[in-house]
């Protein structure tokens, strides 16, 4: 009996474990290893000499990518900028998701699912298609551009281009990530006990006070998990700045992509990826630490 249950344990945990060891752990280790190597003359990597007898100083391993990363503030600046974009995206998502999540949570039960479905539905369309839609809306020939620039010109302000700007990037970011904020927030708000609000009302709290002292603190775990779901993917995004961004919209993701598909510098690309991983781990740790007290969601 003992051996057979042992066997069962290995039978069911073995295959996924093996698969993930090969296709997740090994690639990650290789990425770390790659960051210490030298790029090949034409791309790819220079050979490594680890056999005994070879000169240690010329092993083909180096920490120069890390020195390069820290040698100039420019890369840290890109990280900071990406953090800023991800943070603003998250904040806008909170501001937009909250009223809707609250409304859904307070609607009659039979409408709730319909309303949630309406949030999820746009997600059935392809990710790139959703970004592309904004290219049309913000394009220089679009109605919106003409309208806004009409107003600006009327007040004597120079017309602006909406597409290919930081503004376009933010809109795209928010658009793509918004449901990831609405859903956890709704799941949280739905669980709130209305008795607490009634009690607050009985104690003479006005609607604003009821929100601020009762609903808001209770909803923090929902906000934290939503924020993690928005912030982390937003941090590594490259397609949105690539498609909607202008002359200055570059994020870590674009930089990493460029090392592999432009500059042919795999070691530095790996270093940047490792830095991004560290940043994500730090952020994830921070979120779970904040959210811990009450996070017992799905």
């Amino acid at each position: 009996m003992q051996t057979s249950s042992r066997l069962v344990k290995w039978l069911i945990s073995g295959p996924p474990l093996l698969f993930l060891l090969i296709f997740f752990v090994t690639p990650s280790l290789i990425m770390i290893f790659t960051s210490f190597r030298l790029p090949g003359e034409f791309g790819g990597l220079a050979p490594v000499k680890l056999l005994p007898g070879e000169v240690a100083g010329d092993s083909g391993l180096t920490i120069e990518t890390y020195q390069f990363f820290f040698s100039d503030f420019i890369y840290i600046e890109i990280f900071l900028k990406s953090f800023a974009v991800a943070t603003i995206t998250t904040l806008i998502c909170i501001a937009m998701a909250y009223p809707l999540a609250l409304l859904i949570a307070r609607s009659r039960k039979k409408f709730r699912n319909l309303m949630i479905m309406l949030v999820v539905l746009p997600f059935a369309s392809n990710f790139l298609v959703r970004i592309y839609a904004w290219m049309i809306i913000l394009g220089p020939e679009s109605g919106l551009s003409h309208f806004i620039n009409g107003i600006l010109v009327f007040f004597g302000i120079a017309p602006v281009t909406l597409l290919f700007s930081p503004f376009a990037v933010l809109i795209g970011m928010v658009y793509v990530h918004l449901p990831f904020m609405i859903l956890p927030l709704y799941t949280n708000l739905e669980k709130h006990d209305p008795i607490l609000l009634d009690a607050a009302q009985d104690l003479g709290a006005n609607s604003w006070q009821r929100f601020w002292y009762v609903t808001w603190p209770q909803s923090l775990p929902g906000i934290f998990s939503g924020s993690a779901l928005v912030f982390i993917p937003a941090l590594g995004m490259f397609a949105i700045p690539d498609i909607l961004g202008g002359t200055g919209d570059i994020m870590i993701g674009n930089l990493i992509k460029d090392q592999f598909l432009g500059t042919r510098d795999w070691p530095f690309g790996s270093t940047l990826s490792i830095m991004l991983t560290l940043a994500v781990l730090g952020i994830a740790g921070l979120f779970s630490w904040f959210a811990k007290p009450a996070i017992r969601m799905t």
Partner: peptide, 8 residues
């Protein structure tokens, strides 16, 4: 590759 990195 060194020049490529600097240009990058």
């Amino acid at each position: 590759h060194k020049q490529r990195r600097i240009l990058s």
